[in-house]
Design a protein around this nucleic acid. Structure first.
Length: 946
RNA sequence: GCCCAGAUGGUGGAAUUGGUAGACACGAGGGACUUAAAAUCCCUUGACCAUUGCGGUCGUACGGGUUCGAGUCCCGUUCCGGGCACCA
């Protein structure tokens, strides 16, 4: 008997893989490439729990499978080590972020190394390494020096725009901009340097903008929209307020249409595509000019329901709109000011929770361009300044928000859809026949009428009418906003930017990277003063082309450097490209290397990045694609979202005001409080009473009321966290069962994409399977019992059933059923006493992606050359599964009554005949009439009787 | 409110995509081996009825429908999870 000594085996192969550089990958034109990628981790202080490796294991299995199929597989790993989480951890533990980040990285690496991943560590990247963020800064500069040409639908050098301005001003330009500007070449030339810089900022893809930002005083920084959830910060849950600040931004909105279109070309789950669609929020509508009565001012509204123009009874401006000041009349000024003060006093969170109707009349009236009617203009916070034009036409009959407002202020409601009852609520649906457009006896511009059309037809007709009559134009709006790109924080990429008379300029490319300076005090400030202001070495000397000591500023002409840093997503947006060529000092990625690896074929990570990283990355890659650096428009062809591993918490029940604990089954007889208990001292919900007493001093004297001499704990599924005492550490599992068992069990738990609780209890099953498999190879003296024995038909059948199942399952990420199939095959081969080297060799090759350590050991024992990583993936052959006969159920009226053997090649007619001839069939036919017969070869025979 | 995904034993989950529901594993119960424990092996394990043998009825959140046949397809309802949300 040779024992399955997993510790020895795994230690041996870990060392061998390192010594032989088994996982080192080089570009190889003779092989097809396959790029597998995991979302790289933030090295947080808590280390890995069993949930983290789930996705890594799933992708590792796939990577190994592809390699065995003959692909050249890139499967790298690195660390997302800049940004808020890393810095918050450092602040909480009172250490410098650099120190904690490196410590955490080492800890992660140590844990990852134990699980047997086929990562090529020579390609490791760290976003906080100067050699890496060099290219983050480089990409930022490229964005600064580019604008988005709407006609070409892609980024172009800013010089082209400048040339156009020099020659013809804005004429002929259709460029994505913060606002629409119109000026002539002469006006351009007359601008000062500052004005020119300001103007160009309107177009640059990376630009400095004065915008409303999410300011989080507690974190001392601004946050991107996806970092704010329900009005509080995602990290820490601190309040977030709206504040106008000068910030670096990325013109992500310019790419909105391409981000939307690209979704159709990639193989992602519907739900994540849907999430991105919602986030991009395309809506097609019309912009219409509204003249203000008794004034020469006009303003523009945006609507997706152009068909409802006949139902407009008032207009509404966002309180932040610039029009508010212009349109407020003297009589109304006091009230409007009062209202604006009230609006300002409300935080974003209050606005979201409390949605009572508020608003104020501006005193002015707008003229409906189609009906010519005068309608009052209101100011109300339900209209947002950031979307559309910040002004709307209100149609209370067909918009629930307008309806609520109209009811509150007693404004008229005109129904426009036949049969729509608007006495209680608005009719928002886009179905029905239009009426009252115009109302009987009323006129409209050029006799325009929509009556009798369906709503969909009416929308199109109105859009056409509006643009043909110069009242406005068709417009597509997106909810997607530009990304705020600066943070008032220390732990991030410095901007390669300096200021010359207040004008932001790029530090020359050859001087990159601008390294993050060491500072004593890296803490953020509530006022928003960036901690980089504390740096000594921190100004730019153009003459010497270097960053100089701050103290020299007074003596020489030196220009101050940008003190903001970049946000977390800066470094994580193009890291997949850097893995291709991680040590290239000349470029982000070499031309030939980029051409070879193209893009990521399989990306694995959590769905929580749907509106953050996965949008930014796609945007960033599209920009690099426009530059020709990235070779594919979409960075991640297939995306698998691994589910979250939740914790399974255990509870003990303390009787109130005592130190006595009562077992689950008896707890209802007492007044008890449930208390979380460490899952590591509970097995199969039975509490280790002695360990519990030793767990905490206050439980030393605890007493127990048992059932069947056991203390049974309650349980619940919760988030895996320290405070719930349900964290299971992978190191502990590896120590007790081995990495191969951990890998198998994580996959056996259920489908990769599904969230599920971790329950260590089931792990024995997977461990037992490996032991059984191991025993298949050794006789009772511990010698290899596999030899040149000819495989039997049964052996080959078991083997090929397995090949078929596993090959298909891996492609679909159904690893749990693959493992079941292994268990069945092992049992079958054990029962068959299989000794065939041919069969066993192939079994080991199949097992290699799942349990690489034991597979290597057996591969070697079988006398095979090289690593099992390069074992050819076994080929499935149908002929071993061909049966001469099949056992099928015979149904009468859809119910299976008995089963019998049929020849595998029997025709449906023959099957029916045989089934009817069977003795068991007689009692079902007797005295009845056969109405119909159905037979499907290899499936079913059904006979309908009456 | 809108959109997306889901609901199968005590538990995690299978089901060749419309063809014998509950594979595989855990847990539980019984047994073998053992001085004992661990380890290992064997049997039972959806519910109910029958059990001397055969067996029978119900059953995939709930209510309908299509079909010879539905966990799977269609309509409606409930519940849980996720996304978006004064986005005009």
């Amino acid at each position: 008997m040779r024992e399955y000594d997993f510790r020895k085996i795994e230690e041996k192969w870990r060392a061998q893989w390192v010594a032989n550089k088994t996982y080192h990958v080089v570009e190889d034109e003779t092989k097809k490439k396959f790029y597998v990628l995991n979302m790289f981790p933030y090295p947080s202080g808590a280390g890995l729990h069993v949930g983290h490796p789930l996705g890594y294991i799933a992708s590792d299995i796939y990577a190994r499978f592809k390699r065995q199929q003959g692909y050249n597989v890139l499967n790298p790993m690195g660390y997302d080590s800049y940004g808020l989480p890393a810095e918050q951890y450092a602040i909480q533990t009172g250490q410098h972020p650099e120190k904690t980040t490196f410590q955490n990285i080492d800890r992660y690496r140590e844990q990852l190394d134990k699980i047997g991943f086929c990562f090529d560590w020579d390609r490791e990247v760290r976003t906080c390494a100067p050699g890496y963020y060099h290219w983050t800064q480089w990409a930022f500069q490229k964005m600064f020096n580019s604008y988005f040409d709407n006609t070409l639908g892609k980024a172009q050098p800013i010089e082209q725009l400048i040339a156009n301005f020099e020659a013809k001003g804005t004429e002929g330009i259709d460029a994505a901009g913060s606002e629409e500007l119109r000026f002539t070449a002469e006006e351009w030339k007359a601008m000062s340097e500052q004005e020119k810089s300001q103007t160009l900022m309107n177009y640059r893809i990376a630009f400095l903008g004065e915008t409303m930002v999410n300011w989080c005083p507690k974190l001392g920084t601004v946050l991107a929209n996806d970092e704010v959830i329900d009005g509080v910060s995602e990290r820490g849950g601190y309040p977030v307020e709206q504040k106008k600040m000068r910030q670096w931004c990325l013109r992500v909105s310019a790419y909105a249409q391409r981000l939307l279109d690209g979704l159709q070309t990639i193989d992602w789950s519907d739900s994540i595509k849907e999430t991105q669609k919602n986030w991009i929020g395309r809506s097609e509508g019309a912009e219409v000019q509204i003249k203000v009565a008794d004034s020469d001012i006009d303003f523009t509204i945006f609507t997706t329901r152009a068909d409802t123009m006949f139902g407009v009874t008032f207009f509404v401006l966002a309180p932040e709109s610039e029009l508010v000041a212009q349109l407020t009349t003297a009589e109304q000024k006091e009230e409007v000011d009062k209202y604006l003060t009230y609006v300002k006093s409300r935080t974003e969170r209050e606005r979201q929770i409390d949605r009572t109707v508020t608003g104020v009349f501006s005193g002015s009236y707008g003229i409906n361009p189609i009906t010519g009617e005068k309608c009052p203009i209101y100011i109300a916070e339900y209209v947002l300044s950031g979307y559309g034009t910040g002004a709307i036409m209100a149609v209370p009959a067909h918009d629930s928000r307008d309806y609520a407002f109209a009811r509150h202020f007693n404004l008229p409601i005109i129904p426009l859809v036949e049969g729509a009852d608007v006495s209680e609520e608005s009719y928002d649906a886009k179905e029905g026949i239009v009426m009252n457009s115009p109302m009987e006896g009323k006129s409209s511009l050029n006799g325009f009428s929509l009556n009798g059309l369906t709503i969909k037809e009416a929308i199109e007709a109105t859009k056409k009418f509006v643009s043909e009559n110069g009242l406005g134009r068709v417009k597509v709006n997106f909810r997607l906003r530009d990304a705020i790109f600066s943070r008032q924080r220390y732990w991030g990429e410095p901007f390669p930017v300096y200021y010359k008379q207040g004008i932001p300029c790029m530090i020359p490319e050859e001087c990159l990277p601008v390294e993050l300076p060491q500072v004593e005090n890296f803490l953020p400030t509530e006022s928003g003063e960036p901690p980089l202001g504390n740096a000594q070495m921190w100004a730019w000397d153009e003459a010497n082309r270097k960053i100089v000591d701050k103290a020299l500023i007074d003596e020489k002409t030196v220009f101050p450097i940008e003190l903001f840093t970049m946000p977390g997503f800066a470094g994580s947006s193009a890291y997949y490209l850097r893995y291709m060529d991680p040590n290239n000092a000349e470029a982000l990625v070499g031309e030939k290397v980029s051409e070879y690896w193209q893009n990521v074929d399989l990306y694995v990570g959590g769905s929580e990045h749907a509106t953050g990283h996965l949008i930014y990355s796609r945007f960033w890659n599209k920009f690099l694609f426009d530059l020709g650096v990235s070779k594919k428009e979409e960075p991640f062809q297939k995306l698998i979202n691994q589910g979250m591993i939740q914790g399974r918490s255990n509870f003990v029940y303390r009787i109130k005001d005592t130190n006595t604990f009562v077992s689950l089954g008896l707890k209802d007889q007492y007044d008890t409080t449930p208390i979380h208990v460490d899952v590591n001292i509970v097995k199969n919900d039975v509490l280790d009473v002695e360990a519990f007493k030793a767990w905490r001093p206050e439980y030393e004297t605890a007493e127990f009321i048992l059932e069947d001499d056991k203390y049974i704990c309650g349980w619940a599924v919760e988030k895996m966290s320290k405070s719930m005492f349900n964290v299971v550490n992978p190191d502990m599992i590896v120590e007790r069962y081995g990495a191969d068992t951990l890998r198998l069990y994580e996959m056996f738990l259920g489908p990769v994409e599904q969230s599920k609780p971790w329950d260590t209890n089931g792990i024995d099953g997977c461990h037992r399977f490996l032991k059984k498999l191991w025993q298949l190879f050794w006789d009772k003296d511990g010698n290899l019992q596999v030899d040149a024995t000819e495989p039997t038909a049964d052996n080959m059948k078991s083997l090929h059933k397995l090949i078929k199942k596993v090959s298909a399952d891996i492609e679909e990420f159904s690893y749990n059923t693959s493992i079941s199939a292994f268990m069945v095959a092992t049992n079958e081969l054990t029962a068959q006493k299989c000794r065939s080297r041919e069969v066993m060799t192939q079994i080991v090759a199949l097992l290699a992606p799942f349990a690489p350590h034991v597979a290597e050991e057996l591969w070697e024992a079988l006398g095979q050359e090289g690593s099992v990583c390069d074992a050819q993936w076994p080929e499935f052959d149908e002929k071993y599964l061909v049966e001469s006969s099949v056992q099928l159920g015979v149904q009468f009226n859809g119910k299976v009554r008995f089963s019998m053997l049929f020849p595998a090649d029997a025709t449906p007619e023959q099957m029916v005949e045989m089934a009817l001839a069977a003795p068991e069939a007689q009692k079902h036919i007797e005295g009845k009439q056969i109405v119909k017969t159905i037979a499907v070869p290899k499936r079913i025979v059904n006979i309908v009787v009456k």
